[in-house]
Design a protein around this nucleic acid. Structure first.
Lengths: 241, 241
DNA sequence: ATTGTATAATTGGTACGACCTTTAAGGTAT
DNA sequence: ATACCTTAAAGGTCGTACCAATTATACAAT
């Protein structure tokens, strides 16, 4: 049925973890490729494929004739905005206690925005999931998730939404998000959001308009999110093309 | 003296460009690796290194036993927030006419924030460059760039700041930014920013706190930027680790 | 006809091993 | 000291052979 985890990814995660733990911290550089490959039990070819992706993610820099350097300052970033992380994990990573304050699930029909994002006709039946995540008990993220109703099986309960949303998507919709494109905008809290977050109207909020795609490139999930300022450091790593 | 551009990057750019131009659009997938490698005039090994980075950037998806698929929806993203782009280019990419409305250059000393970001002692002499970039004549981005004074040679004029800031950094500071870490926050325009942008106080702005590092991982450049909403679609592509 | 199952063809994934190119460092002659 | 040359180390590139996942095909069983 479903495929196992590629060994490739496993080794990659293992290497990244050992870098984080400071295994190579002595000189803040990785051993020569041939040595490292042997140590990880893979070929140099395969290792280089891994290094190529780690380099693109900013964790290492490869310099011809010099070596492969570890970018400690990137490894230590608190919350990477350009890497998909579950909200609850994100809150925890920032050193706070994470919880879901409330969940409201309702049926509905795709409005114009949703229809555009999910590339479905306007009026298509959808499920709307509104959630409020808290950090140390204080509102941190409010999001409205939307998925096409025909994708969802029945049998879920509110409890299923207290877990990461990916759990619901996978278990009840057979959907595995592969990547997302998120539009980032600054906004100010209106009356409704002010009440949800417990802040005055006009309080700055970060609005993220997120569309998740599966491995086939099909949009499968839409989420409109609001982040309050001050809870996490949202950091994005950038390199030229 | 200075090294040439690696052939590797050239081929990569070439491949990306031809994907954008729709050369492979017929089936929205790339030819088999062996064929593509030959076509590009490189080995399959090298091609795979390139594909690994393109995959991490979301432009393609590689699936064992299937093929390499082009992610059109990623190629078509207007402004990628997780890829370093010059402000003026960013504005142009969004379909507007870009210009620098004003530049103010002054000397100063590193305050606590700057000292932390650039990892230098407080009070270190710095150069402060304040710029306002406009889109179709309307204020779009206001930024205050800071670089350590000892890095800068003399002889530059205001004209040098009407060009991309990288021009100044490279020509007068011998600095080539390799990557940056940018902290993203929502804010509201205060009196000063309101006047600069010509908007009421409280107008939502996106604040980006950016530190640029060179290839050695040394912080070399700090920039505090404000983006007005509505001019561009700032999009970030995210995948799990 | 439909369904299930073996089989082949396609395509990316992995492995070696040899050689090229870029840096950095050390040593030597000036 | 300075400039230049040599050399070692490390990443970059190449080619070939084979492994593994997927999909398509052929064919048998129902």
């Amino acid at each position: 049925m479903s495929s196992q985890l590629p060994q490739n990814k496993t080794i990659r995660a293992q290497l990244l973890a050992s870098m984080r733990e400071g295994e190579y911290a002595a000189s803040e550089r990785l051993p020569r490729e041939s040595v490292l490959a042997e140590k990880l039990g893979i070929s140099r070819t395969q290792l280089r494929d891994i290094l190529a992706s780690l380099e693109r993610e900013g964790f290492i820099s490869r310099r011809h004739g010099v070596g492969t350097l570890i970018n400690r300052h990137v490894l230590d970033v608190e919350t990477r905005m350009d890497i998909e992380v579950e909200f609850l994990d994100m809150i925890r990573q920032s050193g706070h206690k994470a919880a879901v304050a409330f969940v409201r699930v309702s049926d509905g029909a795709a409005d114009k925005t949703v229809a555009t994002r999910l590339q479905i006709p306007e009026g298509t039946p959808i499920i709307r999931i509104a959630r409020l995540c808290t950090a140390d008990g204080k509102p941190a993220i409010y999001c409205e998730d939307i998925i096409e109703k025909r994708l969802a099986r029945t049998g879920y309960t509110i409890r299923d939404f207290k877990l990461p949303i990916f759990h619901f998507l996978q278990q009840f919709c057979g959907v595995i998000p592969y990547m997302d494109l998120t539009n980032v905008r600054p906004t100010a809290a209106d009356a409704a959001l002010g009440e949800i977050f417990g802040v005055p109207m006009g309080t700055p909020l970060l609005n993220m308009d997120e569309v998740d795609f599966d491995i086939d490139g099909q949009p499968v999930f839409y989420s409109n999110e609001y982040f309050i300022d001050g809870v996490f450091n949202l950091t994005v790593m950038r390199k030229k093309l």
